[in-house]
């Protein structure tokens, strides 16, 4: 269920549990989730940086322009990274 502070209003009624269909393009979503390309990414995922391997260093800016490097947190922080869009 989408939270109250989200930018897309939560639909009312029994469709509330299927909120994503209210704001996504249904056909685009179906094509995406059934594509061989996406399937191949899921198949490869277990072999991508398997647990126990060092996480590669990166250098990226945040939305405020501050630079973050993985090495800045070594020995100091547990790091959680999630990927995706904000929409």
């Amino acid at each position: 269920m989408r939270p109250a502070n989200d930018s897309v209003p939560k639909p009312w009624g029994p469709l509330a549990g299927f909120w994503s269909w209210q704001y996504l393009n249904l056909w685009k979503t179906i094509k995406l989730v059934t594509s061989k390309r996406v399937k191949s990414f899921y198949e490869k995922f277990p072999n991508v940086l398997p647990p126990g391997t060092p996480f590669p260093d990166f250098e990226l800016k945040d939305i405020h322009g501050n630079v973050h490097r993985m090495e800045d947190y070594l020995g100091k922080k547990y790091v959680v990274i999630t990927t995706g869009a904000i929409t």
């Binding site: 996406v38 490869k44 126990g52 790091v79 959680v80 999630t82 990927t83």
Partner: peptide
């Protein structure tokens, strides 16, 4: 580098290794 998939999540220990 992280597999090009949406909404993956990575937990990394203080040792810099992928924990989950």
């Amino acid at each position: 580098m992280l597999g090009d998939l949406p909404n993956t999540i990575w937990l990394i220990g203080k040792d810099g290794k992928v924990a989950y």
